[in-house]
């Protein structure tokens, strides 16, 4: 269970941690706690599965990467094999089975367009894939993964 302090800590740590030599001391100050308590609770929250990751979140486009969202129509009996084949690409960061005719949706990041095209051509030929839609973004309006805990 999350204590009130845990919730305040999780809300704080989801925003920007300052780029200073002792960031957790800075977070502790904001919460009226001490550095050791903050570090200890963060370890507990991470080890118990509440925190997926603490670290930098980069903007892939500004790092020169090309990204897109791809929707596949996959025959049900081929789903496990197709999902595994898609997962094998390091540039596939998210791969979700979803309701609807296009039932497998994945996000793909590659260093350039040529490697994106190569991967999509290979995926389209996988047995059981009956449709592929490449859905690149034309505008990015919001990326803000925050879950406010009351």
């Amino acid at each position: 269970m999350l204590s009130d302090f845990d919730k305040r800590l999780l809300n704080t740590i989801q925003s920007d941690i300052p780029l200073v030599a002792r960031p957790f001391a800075a977070v502790a100050e904001r919460l009226g706690a001490d550095e050791a308590t903050v570090i200890g609770r963060l370890e507990h929250l991470r080890d118990n599965g509440f925190i997926r990751r603490i670290g930098p979140f980069f903007d892939s486009a500004r790092l020169g990467y090309v990204s897109t969202l791809v929707a596949l129509a996959v025959e049900p009996e081929a789903m496990a094999a197709v999902a595994a084949a898609v997962n094998a690409y390091p540039g596939v960061t998210h791969n979700y089975e979803r309701e609807g005719g296009y039932n497998l949706w994945f996000a793909l990041l590659t260093p350039d367009m040529a490697s994106q095209e190569g991967i999509l051509a290979a995926v389209a030929r996988l047995p059981g894939v009956s449709g592929l839609m490449n859905l690149p973004a034309t505008s990015k309006f919001k990326v803000n993964v925050r879950f406010t805990l009351e």
């Binding site: 989801q14 925003s15 780029l19 509440f50 997926r52 930098p56 903007d59 790092l63 879950f147």
Partner: peptide, 30 residues
């Protein structure tokens, strides 16, 4: 350490670094 912190601050100023922080497992937090 100063070189690392200065480079990270530069990435953030230019937008290469969106955020330094935590992302939660949304299922676990409700």
């Amino acid at each position: 350490e100063e070189v690392l912190l200065a480079r990270l601050a530069g990435y953030r100023a230019r937008g290469e670094l969106r955020r330094m922080g935590a992302v939660l497992r949304h299922r676990e937090v409700g």
